[in-house]
Design a binder for these strands. Structure first.
Lengths: 317, 317
DNA sequence: TACATTTACATAACTAGTTATATAATTAAT
DNA sequence: ATTAATTATATAACTAGTTATGTAAATGTA
């Protein structure tokens, strides 16, 4: 299958599906070989039933990793085939009490040999191969239970995309973006306040000329994120990190983190000892980001913003 | 999943199916992550189409290892989704000439990144694991193409069962079996002849007392196969191997081979230099067995049996 | 004790594939 | 130039699973 090599690892699913189909096809021929009238899909259910006498349909489903309706259907097929039967029992009437018929017991005897033969045959394949498929499946089941493929891919996506993000200093051409990106989220969650208009309409006067800084994140040369570092003259803090905004279109590219890191680096270069910020706890991803950047909660400072209900600081080491 | 460990390698199929389901589930979420409206099952078809512009449905099916109807269905779904379209072309009217729409081209651009991210994510899993699932699948595809699982299991079955077969010397209690097993196949394919009745009704007089031997194969202590070594006084051969019969119920346990090997060993012990046999070419499995035992075709000896149309000999080294 | 919740199972409708078979277009053979 | 065989695709019916949902029995709780 040329295809697999061309597509690369992303074809893992397809490759697995084909291998599964090949094995399942042979499985039904193997039952024929042993002269038992048996459908491969019955096997996990039948086997579990033969091993553990008292077991409910739901428990079987859990044990073999199928859904309950699947086991339910198979069970009725097994009954129709005369391999198992329901027995009357006075206890819990929701459960169906199922045991093997003599015919079922006979088949389970044949299976003992059959399973042994398959085991040896597969064991031999494992010996003949450099890469142990059985062990690999076991290992990958574990790896995927630790962290799903989705999560792994998503992390990789973020990593790759953040490489394409460029953090650059504010230039007059980004004035509009600086305002729009901020208005976008502020007016979505709260209401624009007097202090917002001042800073967003005149970043030069209110931020830059007072010794502050503004950074812009570019993606494909488009400004998609902004963040300001504002000088706080009459406070115990040197700077306030504020007006951080990332376009919803560019979310999931780690842009907030990259902007924050760069702002803190700038603060350090400018000799800051402590950086302050204000936010609101309904902005959960933002708060998480601040923690990730190293900010910690502080209490009781005055603020001009109504929307502020949490204040944080970071001490630069 | 306790189940897999209890059942052993025979659960390979089930284990593969679950892994496939887990990967496929995540696959559809991954498409969501990249913001493309795309169903995972479309992928192999769409990808092949994006790579090779001029390709028929049947060729795609072959390339990706699906059935033609499966590709046919997916193709119509892709058309309905506006990702590909049929174009008019004057050549072969059975083929449908399909190309990507602009929307399809856009999605195939997104896929370039997506595939790369998945590749890296899976590559990382491979690095984290001791057993390389991707390499194992590739290797097992090859191993199974060389010899199917069915064939491997069938060989193992034969091997195991032949261990339970006991080859023993003729005793009077096997007289009936000696006759019945032979009558069974002779009358099925040919007609019983005078010479048959003589040997089968009086093995003591016609075989044993003349310096011959009869061996019996027992399975579960039941006689299921017989074979005679008859002294040939007035011939260039020392012995004839004859009256070999195996019960149809006990076929596939290598019994013919075991009987033949043991008969030849006996012949050698008795000082034979050449062993002779007669048969008929319609009995293909038997002829194959004789070749396997080392017999070779010879011509032009006289025979009392009408059914004989092939004569063979083996020179004992 | 009555009512809400949970449990055990069944049923229906869907999914992603399959095989078997039909049909139209093309190619090969007489 | 027919006719037969082959090729390319479509369609129908099936398979082995799934999710969503319904129902009766058992359990928990005010």
């Amino acid at each position: 299958m040329e295809f697999f090599n061309k597509v690369g690892k992303a074809a893992l699913g397809s490759r697995l599906r084909l291998m599964t189909a090949a094995i399942t096809d042979d499985a039904s021929k193997i039952y024929e070989l042993y002269g038992v009238e048996f459908v491969p899909k019955w096997f996990p259910v039948f086997y579990t039933l033969a091993e553990e006498r008292e077991i409910t349909i739901t428990e079987i489903a859990l044990e073999i990793g199928h859904s309950q309706p699947s086991v339910s259907k198979i069970m009725r097929e097994l009954i129709a085939a005369g391999l198992v039967e329901e027995i009357e029992k006075a206890d819990d009437k929701r459960k169906n009490n199922i045991i093997l018929t003599p015919k079922g017991v006979a088949i389970s005897q044949v299976f003992k040999h059959q399973l042994q033969d398959i085991d040896v045959a597969i064991e031999e394949m494992i010996l003949q191969s450099k890469h142990n498929l059985w062990a690999a499946l076991e290992e990958w089941e574990f790896l995927l239970s630790q962290k799903s493929l989705l999560k792994r891919v998503s992390e990789q996506k973020k990593k790759r995309e953040s490489k394409d993000v460029e953090i650059t200093a504010y230039k007059p051409q980004y004035k509009q973006a600086f305002k729009e990106l901020n208005v976008e989220w502020i007016s979505k969650y709260f209401e624009m306040e007097e202090a917002d208009y001042k800073a967003l309409d005149n970043p030069e006067d209110y931020i830059l000329n007072k010794g502050g800084k503004i950074l812009v994140a570019l993606y494909d040369n488009e400004p998609v994120g902004v963040c300001a570092l504002i000088k706080m003259n009459d406070s115990e803090y040197d700077f306030e990190m504020a007006k951080m905004a990332v376009s919803p279109k560019a979310q999931g590219k780690n842009i907030g983190y990259l902007l924050g890191k760069e702002i803190l680096k700038t603060a350090k270069e400018m000799g800051a000892k402590k950086v302050y910020l204000e936010s609101n706890t309904i902005l959960k991803p933002a708060i998480n980001l601040y923690y990730k950047l190293g900010f910690e909660k502080v209490f009781g400072l005055s603020t001009p913003y109504k929307r502020c209900n949490i204040q944080m600081e970071l001490i630069i080491e």
